[in-house]
Amino acid sequence: MDTIYLDHAATTPVHPEVVEAMLPYWTGSFGNASSTHSAGRGAKLALNDARDRIASFIGSSSSELIFTSGGTESDNLALFGAAEAGRSRGSHIVTTRVEHHAVLHACERLSRLGFEVTYVPVDEYGQVSLVDVQEAVRPDTILISVMHGNNEVGTLQPIEEIGCFARDRGIVFHVDAVQTLAYEPLRLSELPVDLMSFSAHKLYGPKGIGALYIARNTRFIPQGYGGSQERKRRPGTENVPAIAGFAKAVELFDRNRYEYREKVERLRSKLVHELERRLGKEAFLLNGHPCERLPHILNISFPGISTETMLMNLDLAGVAAASGSACTSGSLEVSHVLRAMGLSEERAGSAIRFSFGAGNDEDQMIRTAEIIETVAARLRNKI
């Protein structure tokens, strides 16, 4: 049985051209980029070339981009580095209730270290308002962290408006852009953002590699010690093969961004249409913002059928979906994002996240809808 993979927000398959781009740095060109001999210089050249290409993709200077082990480290590094750097001016941090746990758990740790954190609410669509952020800010606020696109419901946040406000107040602004790197054009030289986190495996790159944008003149204290790599901001031997793969993935997406976006939007609409036709519009509910959203994420509640039960039945039928964040999908707890949106227990406890990618097609959407129709009918005692 061929699996219909609808969990691209968790991770994507590595593109064959990305694998090809990585192979030389595991074999012939395996030098340490910090070494001064020819093998090291070759690795350094590849490292600099990859950094330049990724920086160009996000509209930043190469010197403002450092490599990390992924989005989680990037979020952690941004928050701890900025908080420590700003401690002489204040100890208050503002974030939202719907952030990825890489931010929320980091904020919990910062609270234990003596910082105060305010968690701003969101509306029923999962979107934060600029007014609520403004009202949360205090004279001692040193850092605001708001994700760009939500990983569970796809809702986009007004980061430009929040960033302008933060910049006017001299507050460092961090944005988790792990989900949006592939689908939302970024020109960081023009955006009022000081720190932005990325990960390669959300756009057909390898796992275990990410990046952190640190705008020039941003107050930041490194959180690791032991080497001078990455401008002394993130020590440790760089993972050159993965970095080369990250750059290749970015290049492929840059070349085909419009086609990728159109395709996943079409697949999303197809699945919704098929479910409406087979189940009826009243049988399910869409979660997240109807317009200001990512194109590849679809969060649906099937009232009367628990998330766990639906996921188990989908998996048995060959459909891979999720309950929310990939980092917590093994948990049976209701999503903190859906709770923050104020959804009913029944709605939040029956939500499934489908996320689409380049390997999906419309026939798979039809087949997925057929499977859901069968599962729903059986569980609701209609057959």
Rank of each mutant, 00 (worst) to 15 (best):
L23A: 01
E259H: 08
H296Y: 07
A200C: 10
S350I: 00
G126R: 04
A376T: 09
F198G: 00
L65C: 13
H100T: 15
K232L: 14
I171N: 07
I159R: 05
I54M: 14
R41L: 08
D75A: 09
P24K: 07
Y213H: 04
S60N: 06
V19E: 04
L186Q: 11
H174F: 08
R255W: 14
L45E: 11
T95P: 11
G154C: 01
G114W: 11
L186F: 12
D123Q: 04
K270H: 06
L267G: 03
A9F: 08
H92T: 11
E108S: 15
S269R: 15
E262R: 15
S60F: 05
R380D: 05
P16M: 04
P121D: 10
E238G: 02
V337M: 03
L181I: 07
D254H: 10
A358G: 12
L130K: 04
R278S: 06
S355F: 07
C291P: 02
G114A: 10
G304V: 04
A177F: 02
H201E: 15
R167A: 07
H8F: 08
A369I: 06
E20H: 08
A21N: 02
A321G: 02
R261W: 12
L271W: 04
E333Q: 14
G154K: 01
C164E: 15
H336W: 06
I209G: 02
V18S: 02
G86L: 04
L252S: 08
E184Y: 13
Y125Q: 08
S61H: 13
S29Q: 15
S129E: 12
Y260S: 01
P303V: 02
A82G: 06
D194Q: 09
S91N: 14
A50W: 00
A247H: 07
T180R: 01
A242H: 09
V122C: 03
G114I: 11
E308M: 13
C291A: 12
E84Y: 13
M341D: 00
G288N: 03
R378M: 10
V14Q: 07
D168H: 05
A348L: 08
A83Y: 14
V172L: 12
E345S: 12
H105I: 14
E274T: 01
E274A: 05
Q157W: 13
L156T: 06
H174T: 09
C164M: 15
Q134G: 09
I209D: 00
V103K: 03
P121Q: 06
L343D: 03
E190Y: 12
M365G: 01
G357Q: 06
S69I: 06
S129F: 10
L110K: 14
H15V: 05
V337R: 01
D49N: 11
E345Y: 15
G226M: 09
R268T: 04
R266Q: 14
L79H: 12
E276P: 03
I300F: 01
N360C: 09
P206Q: 02
S145G: 12
A166W: 00
K232F: 15
F115V: 10
F253R: 06
P139R: 15
R266Y: 15
L156C: 11
L45G: 13
C327A: 13
Y204T: 01
D75I: 01
I372Q: 07
G70N: 05
G357T: 03
L343M: 09
E64N: 09
A283M: 08
Y5A: 05
E230F: 06
A50L: 00
E262H: 14
I371E: 03
A242N: 10
I300C: 01
V122A: 02
H37Y: 14
L294P: 02
V240H: 00
I162V: 12
L294R: 01
A348Y: 00
